[in-house]
């Protein structure tokens, strides 16, 4: 995995779903901007709930193709940062930019449409729906056919539905869930539910993927699988990834850069090696008895 590795489909123009022959047309927008410009930029972002300052003046930026870890003790404000990026919270102060466009305070669905997708700390699948339907929901945002054509099941709609199903099945094959397509999402084992949540996020065709504790509750073997899986989808879909995780092995193993929060404040930023030995990080997060 190299920083310079080119995403496979990044040069393709955005293609309307129905007309596309490639089952996986790649992220919606082609990366036109210079690689030097950050894909995601947070500028002095703060979030206050009542009297509690959950996040205080955090600045962060990700370049196209990077894999960055966001770590910190419980309650440090990591998930709050995610919620501000995805529009679930509107920051009290500060601004957020994505691909050169300000997205501060936009509604979550608009931010998703721009190319940011996420998973949740506690898995939030559409439990009563099938695995395939979970992925299909993410295609709705790009539906071209009108409500009328869906109501009367006109060819314009059925063609698009067919194309959507093929793409969704293709994606399930990519992530190794094709055998479960018709199973109810809640019937999957835990590790596969995590994987499905990532697949569902991928189906929105993001350029930036936010993973909130993807390895939480996994045993070491599942975590190893997941680590490999993240590396694979990153390359396959040309993703930039921001990752919250407590599993230090995973974080140190795959992140190129790490950002450490404590009590809502950035206390360190740098390479895994630098973070591992950073005195404030050891004090705040890893404690005195650091594992090897």
């Amino acid at each position: 995995m190299h920083l310079t590795s080119k995403p496979r489909h990044s040069s393709e123009p955005a293609v309307p779903v129905a007309a596309s022959t490639d089952p996986w047309p790649g992220p919606l927008q082609a990366s036109a901007e210079a690689p030097a410009q950050p894909l995601l930029k947070l500028e002095g972002v703060s979030m206050t709930f009542g009297g509690l300052r959950a996040v205080n003046d955090v600045s962060l930026s990700l370049r196209q193709g990077e894999l960055v870890g966001l770590i910190g003790p419980n309650g440090a404000g990591k998930t709050t940062v995610f919620n501000m990026i995805t529009g679930h919270y509107k920051p009290t102060r500060g601004r957020i930019w994505f691909a050169g466009q300000e997205i501060t305070g936009l509604a979550p669905n608009r931010i998703t449409a721009l190319g940011i997708a996420r998973t949740f700390q506690n898995i939030r699948l559409f439990k009563g729906m099938t695995v395939l339907e979970n992925v299909l929901v993410a295609h709705h945002v790009r539906l071209q056919a009108s409500l009328w054509s869906a109501l009367f099941r006109l060819p314009a709609y059925t063609r698009e539905e067919e194309a959507m199903r093929q793409q969704a099945m293709e994606l399930l094959r990519e992530v190794g869930l094709e055998g479960f397509a018709d199973a109810e999402a809640s019937s999957l084992p835990y590790g596969l539910q995590r994987r499905l949540e990532i697949a569902r996020a991928l189906a929105t065709r993001p350029r930036l993927l936010l993973l909130d504790e993807p390895a939480a509750g996994m045993n070491p073997e599942e975590t190893r699988d997941l680590t490999a899986f993240i590396g694979r989808i990153r390359e396959r879909f040309g993703l930039t990834i921001l990752l919250i995780e407590h599993d230090m092995k995973l974080v140190m193993g795959i992140c190129e850069r790490i950002h450490v929060l404590d009590h809502g404040v950035t206390i360190a930023e740098g390479s895994p090696e630098a973070i591992r030995t950073h005195p404030r990080v050891i004090e705040a997060y890893l404690g005195e008895d650091e594992e090897a």
Binding site: T86, H88, A107, P108, N109, T112, A113, A117, R118, F120, R124, L125, F126, K127, G128, M129, E133, L136, V137, A138, H139, H140, V141, L143, L147, A150, L151, F152, R153, Y157, E160, E161, M164, R200, A201, T204
Partner: peptide, 27 residues
Amino acid sequence: NLASSSFGRAMRAIREDEVAAEAMGIN
């Protein structure tokens, strides 16, 4: 027809989990 279409799936997604549906780009 509506319920089995993409619009119906969006509605069911909202029923299942509003926050996740929004994060999947559904208005």
